[in-house]
Amino acid sequence: MPIIWLRVALGFYAVGLLHALLVLTRQTSWLARIALPAMTLGVIFHFVSLAESVQQSGQLTLLSLHNSESLLALLIMAAFVIVYLVYRTTSPGIVVFPLVFVLTFAAASGQQPFLLNSPALRKGWLLAHIILIFAGYAALLISFGASLLYLIQERSLKSKQPASILLRLPALEVIDQIGYRSLLLGFPFMTLGLVAGTIVAQAYFGRIDYLDPKILLSVLMWTVYLIMLYTRWSAGWRGRRAAYLATGAFVTAVVAWAANYFSTIHGIVQS
């Protein structure tokens, strides 16, 4: 039973994820009204699921990594709810909702891996994974390039050298918009790409080794990506600070890419 409750919880968390993505792209989201109740319901089912699994095993086992992911997700949500009750702010949700979704997804799929029996289905998921991740990489690359251009343009404006006034770069805000929009656009691709990757890996291996460098780096990259979006969205970070973050995310992405060479997971690609 715990796995069913966990999947119900995951369903509710998906609403939160969608809401977070919508809020990032525009000021208001039509999910705003139901996101918070949905997440609350998610927490309840999540709690039931965990409690039941504890009851079944007779102890709070963290032996299984998947249970600990589930617990971590629950604790993060609990912290979010407390913050909300004290400060009446949902803005951390931008970060919390996707994070909780991904953790719970990993936990749920880990407890009962996806079984893609038909080869065509496996191929389909693999293709989806590749396309989505590549779209995410492309967006990240554009955003990285834009933040470098931003720094150049900012420096030229600050230097006040007359020659630099004639420099033919796009306006600062235009560069900024390009970078931010591609970042926004890339995030859903990256997230869904990772989800698809998880499914594929499980289908091939039956389980996922979360300590595999490829997986670790991908998760790290996704987290940096999320932080970038959040700092930009909440504090309007741009210029130098945004460029550092974009460089960080980009470097992680490149390393995660290079990790193919010393990871076993991506062996399937060659096979």
Binding site: L157, L166, A171, E173
Partner: peptide, 20 residues
């Protein structure tokens, strides 16, 4: 080809920053 008075230089600079 490029603006001259201080006011129009200011406009040029503003456009460099804000675009439109």
């Amino acid at each position: 080809s490029s603006s001259v008075s201080i006011a129009s230089v200011a406009v040029d600079l503003a456009k460099k920053i804000f675009g439109s």
